[in-house]
Design a protein around this nucleic acid. Structure first.
Lengths: 331, 331
DNA sequence: CTGAAAGCGCTAACAG
DNA sequence: CTGTTAGCGCTTTCAG
């Protein structure tokens, strides 16, 4: 009982060959009903369960995949990438995948040595370098990008519908009568900030609203950077009446700046964030933000990766997950 | 080039036996310098790197460990457990461990089937059930507890120095002249809330301060629950002048309640949180909180687990990680 | 439908 | 120090 039983034990106890036991588990329909039952019974008695390692060895496939967070200084603590991770984890667990999680920074330790060869697929989150992608593809590992797109590569990408999210946010602001709307563009990720910025300009233009050079401020995507930038923005005599923030952290910085300048939210200033992260409900007033279904994105990544690994042709190259504006009291 | 090379290829090219190649990689000092060099050279040419699966198979050990988050409804998105996860990941990566991460809720899917047998050690975070622990130990898997302790079990536990953290927080408040100090006890985890509550009472008592029944309020450990409870607490005519919160989220709720009641922080009310999470700097004023080095806790978990797996006797049963009060403007 | 047998790539005695 | 030789547990032709 204390010792783990193998396919041989089951074979012996049930009186059939190991081949049959094997088939009974992996291709049940290839073995006669009655035989199968004998096998299962024996297996049950022995608490047998197939050894995944041996299986991997024989099958020459490991079912091992990895999720790599490619963002400077980011860890699993980054709520956005953690959300994606959550979706990946759930799906991977369900599909009996082995999931390794790491950040780009401590990846080399693992991969460039032996490991890499045993990983069949990788999900690259954030700002993955093209060189990494091609290196991986050269080693015949399947690659899926999430929250990013890279021109000139042939691989599935899973992204959020940034443009629609931005549009919903900006149009809400416009609908509430705002005309001087500024954007606080935290440097999240080149791809993301690019998308959000472009969509912002486009949407403003469509509505015939001006966006002067002083109306868009770049800043680091952390509270301090955002607070500083927001302070400048809001200190102008012709300050905007609304700020569209590149993400919720930047919005939190804007809240701080506004508060310190004695502005009341939302009367004196409307703020909307992006990501709909946990801070939204912690702020007062609660922050209006664009929800991104990160878990869904993670799930989709695994689906795409699986398809790739199964050798399916026609794996979608681009998957866009809808976004939804969550209206709260900050506007 | 496109095909992966094995130990046989290296053996052939370098003209030594596979045994020697194997030794050259796993026990370099057992093979003569010159031979070793030949082996490495051949390996390099072939881009050889040992196959971990085959190795696991031969060695009968998988180096596979798991981190299980045991907290109702919690995911990897929980900042505290994510912090621990970060520490675990880094250390596990470095030690060539395979790390599986999951929440207790979708664990059965993976484990109760085959998987469990191949996992050699598990780190249980949060409110692990004793039954789970004994079940695991019965299967001879090494278990380490983090942020929790269970009476009557013989296993390593890694916890934060809750008592000291509470003391630092409460004494700061007392030092600033507060006498009516309330505690908002969010239901984080039975173990944690118990520790913090006990330490709070003890510390207050030592300083000769009263803690009436109305001075401690339980609430759910989310913003809404905390806001509600804090509103009650602060609506009393003899409202406290300071609130010690069980964690930062609860503190955020307290901020909201205070703001809505027209109280100014920190003049009208001092607030201190616990965990020193990312929200501290997003709130205005910034939140004073007790820092817990979650990454360190994660690292220590892996160290303890490793020791257990190596069969070391005398693995410390209790490891306490220091906590540190970070003073910000909310007091 | 079932069994025999040959691996999958690596390691660990056991001899030299 | 190095080579030979059995496996580790499972899958999979290939024959019955």
């Amino acid at each position: 009982m204390s010792t783990i039983s193998t396919i041989y034990d089951v074979s012996r106890l049930s009186g059939v060959s190991t081949a049959t036991v094997s088939r009974a588990f992996s291709n049940p329909d290839q073995v006669r009903e009655s035989t199968r039952r004998k096998v299962y019974e024996a297996a049950e008695m022995l608490h047998y369960s197939p050894n995944a390692i041996a299986r991997a060895m024989a099958l020459q496939r490991t079912d091992k995949i990895a999720y790599l967070i490619c963002k400077k200084g980011a860890t699993i603590l980054d709520e956005f990438y953690a959300g994606i991770c959550d979706g990946i984890m759930r799906t991977a667990n369900r599909s009996d995948f082995q999931l390794l999680v790491s950040t780009e920074e401590d990846w080399p330790l693992t991969v460039s040595t032996a490991q890499s060869k045993q990983i069949e697929g990788v999900i690259l989150g954030g700002n993955a370098q093209p060189s990494l992608v091609s290196e991986l593809q050269d080693q015949h590992v399947a690659v899926v990008l999430v929250n990013n797109r890279i021109a000139g590569f042939d691989l599935p990408c899973v992204v959020a519908d940034e443009a629609s999210g931005v549009r919903q946010a900006v149009e809400l602001l416009i609908g509430r009568g705002h005309r001087r709307i500024a954007m606080l563009a935290g440097r999240v990720t080149p791809y993301v900030i690019g998308e959000r910025y472009r969509a912002f300009l486009e949407c403003m233009k469509e509505h015939g609203l001006q966006v002067g050079p002083a109306d868009v401020k770049m800043c680091d995507a952390n509270v301090d950077g955002a607070t500083e930038a927001a302070t400048e923005l809001l200190s102008r005599p012709d300050r905007p009446t609304a700020v569209f923030c590149a993400n919720d952290v930047v919005a939190a910085g804007t809240f701080k700046a506004a508060r310190r300048l004695g502005l009341h939210l939302p009367e004196d200033l409307a703020v909307v964030g992006f990501d709909d992260s946990s801070v939204c409900s912690m702020l007062e007033p609660e922050l209006t933000s664009v929800n991104i279904n990160t878990r869904r994105m993670g799930e989709l990544c695994v689906e795409r990766l699986t398809a790739l690994l199964e050798g399916e042709k026609q794996v979608p190259r681009l998957t866009v997950v809808p976004t939804e504006l969550i209206i709260r009291r900050s506007v």
